[in-house]
């Protein structure tokens, strides 16, 4: 089967599935790219921040509704849990940076990277210890029966993921482009010493970056626990793929991370249905894309090379 003899409706169906997956990747990729933009290092504990945020949201949601309810109250409880998950992840991100990365800021670049991998392993195992290794499922607070739009079926959950994803990404873009703090973030990512000469508290900006990136990861974590499952190592593969998405878009570039995530979601979905890659080998798509990008456009799709004139 190929793209050209695929019926239109089926194409549209896969497009929606791909976009949903892509929106989740984008939300995670933003955290990688924002931290990289400012600290020039990959926060390998980002996936675990996502996982712990998802658990936090899950537990609060079940505490509030005692599970398996749908309707008005469940939706309110869900929104509260989502915000709670974002706050917990933000807090975690900021604390991890304080404890594990800040003391190493002047160390060789390998040191914080190893520290991040260490934090990731610790958090994953703590989660397994306290929450168990069995996977859980975040129940939908609404009736998730697929809606039939012509021949396409879309679940309310997919619609929510797409809408929330778009809103969050658009707000982030606006924040970075237009607000005083957002501009300060960009300034800090371009030159930390000079940013401090502007009166910008660079440590505060770094904490803010971790807070925002982690909050977005928490949202992705909740979405993943609804679409798929919740388990202690869920952040691993998702984190890795989102990292690839960030590299594909151009690491350090906000729009690049959004584009890279969406692109990867689409490629994974269409790779299976069009090229016929077996479902079990789906994960190879992301890594192949990474290799191709690194070979032909190592700075990523959206990276411009503006050099400072000396």
């Amino acid at each position: 089967m190929n793209l050209f003899n695929l019926p239109h409706t089926e194409l549209l169906q896969h497009l929606i599935n791909g976009l949903t997956l892509g929106a989740i990747y984008s939300l995670i990729a933003l955290g990688y790219t924002m931290v990289y933009g400012i600290l020039k290092f990959i926060n390998f504990a980002h996936g675990e921040i996502l996982m712990l945020g998802a658990y936090a949201g899950y537990f609060l949601y079940y505490f509030l509704c005692e599970g398996s309810q749908t309707g008005g109250f469940a939706i309110i409880a869900f929104v509260i849990s989502l915000i709670f998950a974002m706050l917990i992840s933000s807090f975690l991100g900021v604390i991890i940076e304080r404890i594990a990365y800040r003391p190493l800021r002047k160390a060789p670049r390998l040191a914080p990277l190893l520290s991040a991998i260490g934090v990731s392993i610790i958090l994953m195992n703590l989660a397994a210890l306290f929450f168990g290794t069995k996977s859980r499922k975040f129940d939908y607070p609404f009736d998730n029966t697929a809606l039939q739009l012509g021949n396409i079926s879309v679940t309310p959950n997919q619609i929510m993921i797409l809408i929330v994803g778009i809103i969050l990404m658009a707000s982030l873009k606006l924040f970075i482009d237009k607000t005083r703090l957002g501009k300060a973030m960009r300034a800090t990512s371009q030159n930390q010493a000079v940013a401090s000469l502007m009166g910008i508290n660079v440590n505060f900006i770094i904490s803010l970056t971790f807070a925002i990136g982690s909050a977005l990861a928490a949202v992705a974590g909740i979405f993943m626990s609804m679409e798929f499952k919740l388990y202690p190592t869920m952040g691993q593969m998702a984190g890795l793929k989102a990292f690839i998405a960030a590299v594909v878009g151009g690491i350090g570039n906000i729009s690049g991370a959004m584009l890279g995530g969406i692109l990867l979601g689409l490629l994974e979905t269409f790779g299976v249905v069009i090229i016929g890659i077996p479902q079990g080998l789906k994960d190879t798509i992301a890594f192949s894309v990474l290799i191709i990008i690194l070979l032909f456009r190592p700075s990523g799709l959206l990276m411009k090379n503006i050099r400072e004139k000396v």
């Binding site: 501009k183 960009r186 300034a187 371009q190 030159n191 010493a193 000079v194 000469l197 503006i306 050099r307 400072e308 000396v310």
Partner: peptide, 13 residues
């Protein structure tokens, strides 16, 4: 205020 060596402007702003 310091005007740093090499000007230190933010090139992508």
């Amino acid at each position: 205020s310091l005007v740093p060596e090499g000007r230190g402007i933010f090139p992508e702003m």
